[in-house]
Each structure stands twice: as C-alpha cells, then as structure tokens.
Design a protein around this nucleic acid. Structure first.
Length: 418
RNA sequence: CGGGAGAUGGCAGAGUGGUUGAAUGCACUGGUCUUGAAAACCAGCGAGGGUCACACCUCCGGGAGUUCGAAUCUCCCUCUCCCGGCCA
C-alpha cells in the first residue's frame, strides 16, 4: 500500500512516478485531500475523547467527597453524543480512504524504464546460445508421439479445460525438477519450507491479490479461503503482523507449491498445450530484507533463477519490465524468458520482483531497527514455473524422431527411468 | 461433527466496572561491580496513530452493545486446548 503520509509530503514526486504505471493524478489528488481531511477530523475527535476520559476520572473523587455528580454526568452525556457523531464520520472517511488506497499500485523504482506494454521492456542480457536443429523443431504437444506423456482430454474430464494430466516419464521428470530446483536454491542459502496451498483473505490482501484481482482467484465456497495463485502468498504472509529481529534479516525461503489461477481475461490465449493452465507447479523464492539490502537480494534472486536455467542448459534472456508492464505490487521486476524452439520465441518462465515496502505495509512486516520498528522490504520470484520448464526441456532437447533427452543435472533425480 | 475449557505484552502469568497500557517472574537491552565472564545490584523494556518535541488518542483474539467510565458486564464471530466420533 501507498504511504499516505509520503503522498502528502512529496506529492509531486510520487505522482510523477506513478504516471509510469498509468495512475491518474486526479485519484492521487483526491486521496491526498481525503487524508488531510481525515487528520483534521481525527484531531477534533481526539480532543473530545480526551475531555471525556479526564472528566470521567472525576466521578470516584466526587463520590468520595460526597459532591453532586448529576451536573457532570449531564455534561458528559452530551459530550458522548458529539463523539459518537464525529466518530461515525471519521470511520466513514477512513473506510473510503482505505478502499481507495488499496487500489493504488506500487511506486515504480527509478530504474524502471518508461513504457506502456511489453514491447517497451528492456532486454538486459541473453544467456546461452539457442540450440540449432537440422530439422524443424516441434511444439511440445507434438512431441508426445505415443500419447503417453500428457493427457489433455482426461484433465478436462477430471476438472475442466486448462487442466491436464502428466504420465509416465514426464510425471517423473516433473517431480525430478521440483527436487532439483529446491536443492539448487537451498545451496544458495534459501531455506526450504512447505506451506498450505490455501490462504485466507487477510493473506491475499497483504500481498496485494485482493481486493483488486479477486476474479483471478479460485475461491472456496462458503469460506473466506482461496487457492493460492503463487507461493509468494503463503511465504510472505508467514511474517504478517510480526516484528522481526534485525540480525535475522534477510530471510530467504524457497518452497514448492501448486499454483491456481483462473486466467480470467486470457480467453483464447495459449489454449493449446501446457503453457497456460489453471494449475501448475512452481518452486518459489521469497525474501524479507531490510530496505538497504533489498537491491542486493534482488540481484541474488535473479542470478539464482538464471543460473538454474543455465544449469539445465536452457537458453534464456533477462528482461527488465517497463512501467506499464509492471505488476500491481512490484516496484521492479525482471522476467526470465526461456527459448522455446517449437514456438520459435522466448516465453516467460520466471518473474522476480522487489515490492519494497508495498506488501510489508499491508502485511505489517516490520523489524526492530535499534529502537524503532521499521517496515521491511519483501521480494519474490519464481525459481521456475515447473510446467513451462518441462515444455522447455522437451522442446530444447528434442530429437528428430520426436523423443527428447534429459539434461545431465537431472539424471540422478529420475532414478534411471528411461 | 458433538461435549467442556480458554484467548491479557517475546514467553509465563495476575488482574471481574473507576486515575490499569496493565502486577509479578523469565527473556532482552544499558549500566555498576569484575582481569574477563557469571552472579548480584540499578535502570530501561508492547504496538499503532499524532507532534519539531511533548500533550493527546487507540489497542488486553475480532466485531457490536451497556456505562459518565470496560481487560473486567451483555451479545455475535473466530481461534486454541482437552474429551468423544470420523479419517489421511
């Protein structure tokens, strides 16, 4: 969430930065005015409350001294009514302000390039050479020659479209990837955690999926619970409402979870194959850091994910997202795009974001900085989306006969299968 | 899912209407003492808002209510623990 005090004090700068994300200045102006009005209203409310508190304390004294309390009582009853009236007004304004503020995206970092769409993103670096083929490489669904690896039909039968079933060696490979990735991350100092795949609404508010993106989530009927769209939600919320010790930061975590997304608004996109599913496995990285650490931790996370791809022998590139393509909660994001020879293009396989104090403010994640409690920074990034990684391996390691190899590093994870 | 008990500061644990944001113990931080450490002693030590700084306001699981005044009384909700049922 936006720091409203900051908005009041440095309106020009913040407003200018948020233009990058396409936020209308009028909304910010309104927000600022409501905030100032609220502060004034609150001040007068508190004054009346102070009177009420002070004079209430006179009762026991009056009674002891056998003085008449009826006049005092009348006075305070009157004052009480005034308080109730203003209180109601204050609550109303607070609610209004809060609702509006929750819908304002994070302020982009200064390093974020201007731009409105993914076409304006900046390619930072390409890693590894794209593989060359002396035949026309196929897309992943055409590589399942005997139909014994991916079962799309039965995935639909079990749930609905955009669900699939993995079988045989591909199922094994998926499991191998989870293990390999987590081991890889652990060696880089990320501690492994296993968390619920269901989260309550407080958690989803804290990381910013709610209230704005409810339509993208699978909600559990009659409960305030949702299937998680990413492990970022449970991992970050681990520390919600907590005050951490300075010397335990940065906290770096990795976890495998299934992720569930409605993909509302993606109708017609990637309908074929496993690129865009309602459920997919992902190994996630999350870090909680002090503000002055987050830049370095961010770089660490980017190299962790990139090195992981490199270790799998997958050509990829690092893309710095422009303001218009930046997610709601992110101050800065680097996407990793893997080369898919069958599609003949790069596709996003990982996305690493620094949300700075945006989530921390919503989630009240603080640390004790000497005497003061300060907000932490939070960062998240896919180590890799496992489903897309499977596709990448299939397509990049394919042979002319439609079979494909398994990267060296995964051999020991597949128990000699194949 | 049925029956019972409970929810107070980092933890433990007092407090049942009145100057209580909260005793006490532990933990923690600073100091004295010590060659150093421990012990002992002294001091500090919840959170959010507000202010240049004070003042002041809010918070004793969450919400609503009674009252001049609520951690304490009433109602609703949630969660935890124990007993039973069911079940990975």
């Amino acid at each position: 969430m936006l720091d409203l005090k900051e908005l009041q004090n440095s309106f020009e700068q913040i407003s200018k930065k948020l233009q990058k994300k396409g936020v209308d200045e009028k909304i910010l102006q309104e927000l600022k005015e409501i905030f100032i009005a609220l502060k004034q209203k609150r001040a007068s409310l508190e004054e009346l409350k102070a009177i009420q508190n002070q004079k209430s304390k006179l009762f026991p004294i009056y009674i002891k001294e056998k003085k008449d309390i009826s006049k005092l009582k009348d006075e305070l009853e009157e004052n009480k009514k005034k308080i109730a009236l203003i209180q109601e007004n204050v609550n109303e304004i607070e609610q209004k302000l809060h609702n509006k503020a929750l819908n304002i995206p994070n302020i982009p970092d200064d390093s974020v390039p201007d731009g409105v769409s993914e076409d304006d993103n900046v390619i930072l670096k390409e890693v590894l050479k794209k593989p060359e083929f002396d035949f026309i490489p196929k897309e992943h669904w055409d590589l399942d020659i005997n139909q014994n690896l991916i079962d799309f039909q039965r995935g639909v039968k079990l749930a609905k479209s955009r669900f699939s079933v993995l079988k045989n060696s591909l199922a094994t490979l998926e499991r191998a990837l989870y293990n390999y990735m987590i081991d890889f991350n652990t060696k880089r100092g990320f501690s492994e955690v296993s968390v619920p795949f269901i989260a309550n609404k407080e958690s989803l508010f804290a990381t910013g999926q709610l209230p704005k993106f409810e339509d993208d989530l699978f909600k559990i009927e009659d409960e305030d619970l949702y299937l998680i769209p990413t492990a970022e939600v449970p991992l970050t919320n681990l520390f919600r409402d907590e005050i951490l010790k300075e010397d335990e930061l940065p906290i770096k975590l990795t976890s495998y979870t299934a992720c569930f997304r409605k993909e509302a608004g993606s109708a017609g996109r990637d309908t074929r194959g496993m690129i865009r599913q309602h459920q997919f496995g992902k190994v996630e990285l999350v870090a909680i850091s002090k503000p002055d650490q987050s830049e370095a931790v961010f770089d660490e996370m980017v190299s962790c994910a990139s090195d992981l791809l490199t270790s799998l022998g997958l050509a990829h590139r690092l893309v710095l997202l422009c303001g218009g393509d930046l997610g709601f909660g992110a101050a800065k994001t680097i996407d990793l795009e893997v080369w898919l020879p069958g599609q003949n293009r790069y596709r996003e396989i990982s996305s690493i974001s620094n949300t700075k104090d945006f989530q921390a403010r919503r989630a009240k994640i603080r640390y004790k900085d000497g005497k003061k409690n300060r907000l932490t920074h939070t960062l998240n990034g896919s180590s890799l989306a496992v489903g897309r990684c499977l596709i990448a391996i299939m397509e990049n390691y394919q042979k002319e006969d439609g079979t494909f190899e398994i990267p060296q590093v995964l051999q020991k994870y597949i128990n000699g299968t194949r």
